[in-house]
Amino acid sequence: MSTGILPPISARRRRTDRLMSGLFYAATGIALVPLLLIIGYLIKEGASQFSAAFFTTDPTGNFAGDIGGIRSAVLGTIEMVAIATLISVPIGIAVAIWLVEYGKRSKPAAIIRYLIDVMTGVPSVVFGLFIYVSLVETGIGGSGFAAWKGSVAISLLMLPIVARSSEVVLELVPNGLRESALALGAPRWRVIATVVLPTALPGLITGSLLAVARGAGETAPLLFTVQAAMGINFNLSERMNSLPLEIFNDVQSSNPAVVTRAWGAALTLVLLVLAITLLARIVAGRSRLKP
């Protein structure tokens, strides 16, 4: 800011500037305080659990003695969330593409956009009950509680998050890029596949990850659609264990050892989502097209 050309910045403006910068620093700090507190709390309560046996044995149900680890819960969560992701991310991004590339400012697009926002406000427990009355009680796809029904419930939660965040990101792809590709004679689908999506990829991944993080930690939909199992199970049409339910059930126990397992499971869940986040960021970083 060479004062030679521009009039000097008044003390008041400078003060405001400093004050506001300070506020931005402070806000970021405040946002991170709860994270540190929660992680610290989880480590304090649950880190003592981490051992090879914790990750390689299933909960036994034993009250005293060997209560077992959380292997089946970890695998069940990975399996169910992976399937929910396979359902919700493609659909969510597809809807976002439609909104940005085709629907644009039209009435139908406005309605869909509105509905997606409304969908984010549907409580997870209501989606759980919805799947319960439409899939579980009716016994569709084999009787009763099943892992795939849990995945469907989770994907309903993830879908609006993926769609809305993807839309925001796709909206930001400069129109110039689209137009120049179209002007070069590329068909619309190629423009979308080779220009729009790669440009928006990091943002799309961020949105999907937020959705995965949300989906992985939900308890209520699983309670009404899957329910807990003890052992390992790869059959999607049966009950499957999961980390949120393991936490939910264990924390109510009167046995302090079981409660500690709940905190260990919670720490595991957070680390698991962290690992997924980091992995996806690295993938995104590698594949990003430099504009």
Binding site: L35, L37, A213, G217, L274, T277
Partner: peptide
């Protein structure tokens, strides 16, 4: 790192937020 840290807040399951609220 800051980006990841803030996003990590989303990784905490809601039941953990609740329990942390109750006990902490």
């Amino acid at each position: 790192p800051l980006t990841i840290l803030v996003e990590l807040l989303a990784a905490v399951p809601s039941v953990v937020y609740g329990l942390w609220g109750v006990f902490f």
